[in-house]
Design a protein around this nucleic acid. Structure first.
Lengths: 154, 154
DNA sequence: CGTCAATTGAGACACAGTCTCGACAAGCGG
DNA sequence: CCGCTTGTCGAGACTGTGTCTCAATTGACG
């Protein structure tokens, strides 16, 4: 859209460029993993990707997937979240601004939500306890619009 | 919940009573684990407890510790949180009301903080995305007052 | 095209957490 | 106080996630 780097929209090209800009080589494995992630909808975990890769008969080691997940998390292209049951998963981040994730507990689909003033509130909360806030994590879990309709009979 | 002595302060007796009230037997292992947790200050994880138990030469199986952690989490006496690095840990909860935890990234000590209006904000955020919120998790990480003083020379 | 370091896949490894199972003991009724 | 019942126990096998090592490969750049 605007300036090239402000646009975080997730096309294979943009992501690949970001990886390359960050000083990483573009390899077959990395391209493949980016593809895998782009075709995922919602929260996924490492085993989802590993299964996807196997299904497509891609030869990608488990370790490579974990490594790539780290790289992308560092670049802010994905974020690691923790499901209510304690398992870890990842979600794609669409924008680079500070935001949070809303994950459907039924279908795992996720939406980004604006911080909406939480950040300030949270800093104030920490301050009143005498802490200097470094980092906060907010994760929302609920039922997404499309699962709401479907779950009446459940 | 019911009587005033359902006071949240964590004495061994109160906790033990809560466990018993919930229909669980009071065993040596459970008493020992409650003790271990009460002498912990701040966030701890299962391996901390296992190490503590070994140090005190208590004979408590790993599985028992995990089981007890689950029980206490169900009772709301402790809460499971996720550290920024992805590891899991637990913190004691002082009150039963909805609250969040503020964990010191340096010493792991933790404080409970009031929700302070976050809950409403969060429901609104979810609503505007069309989700019905079920659950949210907010974790704050920062430097606690006593570590702030000490970290000047670090 | 050649060099060289980054990256790879495979598999060993570390570790958290779960499960199973026979032994044991808490709590209760007698 | 004494047995019974059944929840709970500890040990260790097991599972699954994530990390590490290492020799072989390959991307990027000249």
């Amino acid at each position: 859209m605007q300036s090239p780097e402000a646009d975080q929209s997730h096309s294979r090209a943009t992501l690949t460029l970001a990886v390359s800009r960050a000083g990483f080589r573009i390899t077959d494995a990395r391209r493949a993993i980016i593809d895998l992630i782009l075709t995922r909808d919602g929260a996924f975990d490492s085993s989802d990707l590993i299964a996807d890769a196997r299904r497509r008969k891609l030869v990608v080691g488990r370790a490579t997937i974990f490594r790539m997940l780290d790289v992308l998390a560092d670049l802010g292209a994905i974020e690691r979240i923790d499901l209510p049951n304690g398992a870890h998963s990842y979600v794609r981040c669409l924008g680079s601004r500070h935001h949070h994730h809303l994950v459907c507990t039924n279908c795992q689909r996720s939406s980004d939500v604006e911080d909406g003033g939480i950040a300030d509130l949270v800093v104030a909360m920490a301050q009143s306890a005498g802490y200097v806030l470094e980092h906060h994590r907010l994760e929302l879990f609920g039922i997404c619009p499309s699962c709401q309709g479907r779950s009446r009979d459940k």
